[in-house]
Design a protein around this nucleic acid. Structure first.
Length: 448
RNA sequence: GGAUGGGUGCCCGAGUCGGCCAAAGGGAGCGGACUGUAAAUCCGCCGCGUUUACGCUUCGAAGGUUCGAAUCCUUCCCCAUCCA
């Protein structure tokens, strides 16, 4: 996690903020980047794979950085890797690459755009409105021979295999397909294209992308040098084609216990509220490890640094308030004030000692009465993965109703008992919700 | 195309002179105790179903041999390494 002390002092407000909050790992040329960012609006980009129709918390770091840069007056380009998604990212190991249809990608892109717009502004009429582009628009039409001639000749394999992603594969004697090997060229070409089309001067992204990013910077420099030579100019002369491109990387965040940010054992922490409710999102953050509190506050909230330091300095039980603050702020950024407040209230109710759980979701299960075992594994409740599992858990006291541990698997819950507001059901350590029975006969009497 | 070594449960990884293997061990996960909805620790669970002893479905796929196969045979698919 970038050591802020090892960075040079910056002039630009953009880099100051990023450095202070721990967003910076490596830069192609800090002095030049700083100067460019001080001099005026810089267009920069970060790439994302539109392989799903929602982002997850793992992408949040780069999104937050984008937000800071835009706030400092710079213009973000969100690059959708519609074309490269079809190739597969080499840094992602041996993932089976999904074959995405153009329709799927189009659908994903528009869904993702909505999510980005919670963090950066697009169409406000400001100079630094963000842009969203899809590299399928220029990559799909690329012709092989031309590409080799114009782009390929600027790369030496010697240099390419020095890139960490490739080097690891080669040294580990793991397979590296030619297709994946080309990923770097494609990404470099993206940068060149954005430079030409949108005057994009900087690429930012996770540090795992360093090799690819620097390849883009070098490609731009070489192409410009060629161009200038053709024009009979020395590079750097007044009229020379712009050759100054930069890149900046963020540290790869891992959680204190070694996990990936934005992933839980159960899967990704999605930004889409349909996939991952604001309450769960809030829970994700508030459940962070003690040692992560400061980093997370710095990176995923916009609280002033003084406050961040104060919150992070708390110890023991008091640190939980800091986590609540983190969760609230992070949820607020994504889902807005109301949802964040609701999640906070629900959390306070569920984990407090009170009997009022009114802010928690009320799940309605059809039926007049139901056995506890069936209730707890009902698809609307999903307390445990199977009946077998549920049986074990119930016996060991994992289920509580209205605060009381219930260990009888066969206990019958009736609609009457649930009442209007439902029972306070707790399944396991953290799962809490309210349930009630509809009182009507279950609609699925027969089965095939 | 040839040679060799492999494909085991969420992951890693034992297990092949056939039974005692639902399959060692580790990790992850889950539940309990403890606590601060933390960490560490301890205990338990960790294919599915059932009134826990049984039943059912698993060891790349499909067949076969056998009373009985993850373990033997056949074919096929896939992966790695070397050769072409």
């Amino acid at each position: 996690m970038g050591d802020p002390d090892s960075l040079p002092p910056f002039e630009s407000s953009a880099l100051k903020v990023l450095a202070e909050r721990g967003f910076i790992e490596q830069g192609s040329d800090f002095a030049a980047i700083d100067a460019a960012l001080s001099a005026g609006m810089v267009t920069f980009y970060t790439g994302y794979d539109p392989t799903a129709d929602s982002l997850h918390a793992g992408s949040l770091l780069t999104i937050m950085a984008m937000r800071h840069l835009q706030k400092a007056g710079h213009r973000p380009i969100v690059l959708m890797g519609g074309a490269t998604a079809m190739v597969g990212d080499p840094s992602g190991r041996s993932e089976t690459r999904k074959i995405l249809t153009t329709e799927t990608i189009r659908h994903n892109v528009s869904a993702l755009r909505k999510q980005f717009s919670r963090f950066v502004h697009f169409d406000t009429g400001a100079d630094n409105d963000a842009l969203l582009v899809d590299n399928a628009d220029w990559l799909l039409g690329v012709r092989y021979i031309e590409f080799l001639r114009d782009i390929g000749r600027h790369f030496t394999v010697n240099r390419m295999i020095a890139a960490k992603t490739y080097r690891d594969r080669l040294e580990g004697e793991l397979p590296l397909s030619f297709l994946e090997f080309n990923y770097q060229l494609l990404q470099a070409y993206d940068f060149l294209h954005l430079m030409r089309e949108h005057d994009c001067r900087m690429q930012v992204g996770g540090s795992d992308q360093w090799g690819n990013m620097i390849a883009g910077v070098e490609l731009i420099r070489r192409v410009a040098a060629d161009h200038n030579k053709a024009q009979g100019q020395d590079p750097g002369e007044a009229d020379a084609a712009p050759a100054h491109a930069y890149c900046l990387t963020y540290p790869l965040l891992t959680t204190a216990d070694g996990g990936k940010m934005g992933k839980t054992a159960k899967g990704a922490v999605w930004l889409d509220p349909e996939r991952y409710s604001p309450y769960d999102y809030y829970q994700y953050w508030i459940n962070c490890h003690d040692r992560d509190v400061e980093t997370l506050l710095r990176v995923f909230t916009e609280l002033p640094m003084d406050q961040v330091r104060e919150l992070a300095s708390r110890e023991g039980k008091a640190l939980n308030e800091s986590k609540a603050m983190l969760a609230y702020e992070a949820t607020r950024l994504l889902h807005g004030e109301d949802e964040a407040a609701r999640a906070r209230t629900a959390t306070a109710q569920a984990f407090g000692k009170g009997e009022d759980w009114s802010a928690l979701p009320l799940i309605e299960v059809p039926g007049e009465s139901i056995k506890l075992l069936d209730l707890v594994v009902h698809e609307a409740v999903k307390g445990f993965k199977s009946k077998r599992d549920a049986r074990e858990r119930i016996k060991s006291g994992a289920v509580k109703i209205d605060g009381e541990s219930v260990t009888d698997v066969n206990e019958v819950i009736t609609a009457e008992r649930c009442g209007e507001d439902g029972l306070r059901l707790q399944t396991g350590r953290k799962r809490r919700l309210r349930v009630k029975l509809s009182g009507e006969a279950p609609p699925e009497p027969e089965q095939a």
